[in-house]
Amino acid sequence: MSLLAADPAARVSSFNPVAKFAAVLVVTLTLLLSIDPVSAGVTLLLVLALLPWSGLSARMIWLRCWPLLAAAVLASAATVLYGRPSGATYLQWGLLHISDGSLYLALAILLRVLAIALPAIVLLSTTDPTDLADGLSQLLHLPARFVLGGLAGLRLVGLLIEDWRELSLARRARGVADAGRVRRFLGQSFALFVLAIRRGAKLATAMEARGFGAPGARTWARPSVLRRRDGVLVLIAFAVAAASAVVAVTAGTWTFVWAL
């Protein structure tokens, strides 16, 4: 099973994609209002506490989230070295300026990135693209032509990865991939680009022939409905967001982004 494929055995996969999207949006918007370590830390702790109920194994969560952790550490490290100086200064050398302000901001960014991305990865990466398209069209009433086009494009991502691998093997078999790594990458990227355009044109023609772009009301093979557990998921997201904001305001660390 692909690491980004929805695991049907996981509990979190059974929620409606629209409810999962709404839950992620609630948590994200709350954290985007303030840059402080307290609100992000509270959200991260609550999300980590809820992970055992997601139905995903620790190994699967780690494989999906380790790039996020690496990106958060790099972002915070850059903030430590080049962040806005304030308070006591610990090191200053050229452009490098490590101070209380840069350390505080780096911690806030580290926790903020993890708190925003972790629930998004867990919830949205366990969502089947077809179920998401059904929910967006039937519940949110987005244009079916736009939703189905996006779904078709998303389904082709796996094919592009396979095409890249086959192009690499074919070029190596012809002896044109033995030297010049940069030149090989550029040539292979152009070949993949041409192949993607051809496949996209054929797919668009096939979808038009099957009536995907026809005017009028559209029928759906699988109805998308919201259940009670979907409402519980959204309420949990509101509770997590409210708890993080209340704790940050009580601690006096809540700082609106436009006040920075």
Rank of each mutant, 00 (worst) to 15 (best):
L114Y: 09
L118R: 10
L140W: 14
D134T: 07
I121V: 11
V122Y: 12
Q138W: 06
P129N: 11
T130F: 01
G149V: 06
A108M: 03
P119Q: 06
G149I: 10
L142K: 13
A133G: 00
L142E: 05
L132C: 07
L140S: 13
L111N: 07
L124F: 01
P119S: 04
Q138N: 01
L136G: 04
A115I: 02
Q138K: 06
L111F: 09
Q138A: 00
L132W: 03
I121Q: 09
L142R: 11
L124Y: 03
L132N: 05
T126G: 12
A115W: 07
L110V: 06
L132T: 01
T130P: 01
A108R: 05
D131C: 01
A117N: 15
A117Y: 14
R112G: 10
H141F: 08
L118A: 01
L118W: 08
R112K: 14
L111E: 03
G135H: 08
L132S: 01
G135V: 05
I121R: 03
S137V: 12
D134L: 11
Q138C: 03
Q138E: 04
V113P: 05
L139K: 15
G135A: 00
A144C: 04
P129A: 08
P119N: 02
S125N: 14
A115T: 12
V113M: 15
F146P: 00
L123R: 15
D128E: 13
P119D: 00
V147A: 04
I109N: 03
L118T: 05
L148W: 15
A117L: 14
I116Q: 11
V113S: 12
L124E: 04
L110Q: 15
T130H: 05
A133V: 01
L107M: 12
L124V: 02
L139R: 13
L123V: 05
